[in-house]
């Protein structure tokens, strides 16, 4: 039963990710990214990370994809004319693809990742997350908080109109 759901969600994730890459319309790409995130959240649920699935949908679908759609519609760019790829790009993509295929193949054939398995581990509760976040990972939480503050200030500075600076010049 779990196998069926795994293949369903994996297919959804990878299929929509392929559509994100292949789609020429950016709005469709953003919506496919949303679908891919839904599949990934399903995979998280299969891995007993219910809270993370929820947070992923909340942060990515609620904030990131919405922001992407907002910016895409704000900029309103037309799809550019289809140009052939440069030989260097094709060579880089071929080399990268070959390396990735080699990596996956060697990983599948040679890796020894037979771990204990999930059966005996309990589903992580919200309390367990909170305990980790407020004891072991207290410093990273603070650092990430400051990072968010810095990002917010950076965005404000970046998106400010630079009229005064241009007038001063």
């Amino acid at each position: 039963m779990a196998a069926i759901f795994f293949y369903l969600f994996a297919g959804l994730t990878l299929g929509s990710a392929a559509l994100v890459v292949a789609n020429r319309n950016t709005v469709n790409g953003a919506l496919c990214l949303l679908l891919s995130l839904v599949g990934l959240a399903g995979l998280f649920v299969l891995l007993d990370a219910y809270l993370l699935a929820f947070v992923l949908l909340l942060v990515y679908a609620g904030a990131v994809v919405a922001l992407f759609l907002f910016i895409i519609m704000l900029l309103d760019t037309q799809p550019a004319a289809r140009k052939p790829f440069k030989p260097l790009t094709l060579a880089a993509a071929g080399l990268g693809g070959a390396l990735l295929v080699m990596g996956v193949l060697s990983f599948l054939t040679r890796a020894r990742l037979a771990l204990a398995g999930p059966a005996e581990t309990a589903v992580p509760s919200l309390k367990a997350y909170a305990e980790r976040l407020f004891t072991t990972y207290l410093l990273p939480v603070q650092v990430v908080g400051f990072l968010l503050l810095g990002a917010m200030l950076g965005v404000v500075v970046l998106s400010k109109k630079l009229d005064s600076a241009e007038k001063a010049r």
Partner: peptide
């Protein structure tokens, strides 16, 4: 959790 937080900041 931290990866998601960084991702949100990075996208913005």
């Amino acid at each position: 959790f931290f990866v998601l937080t960084i991702a949100a900041a990075e996208v913005a």
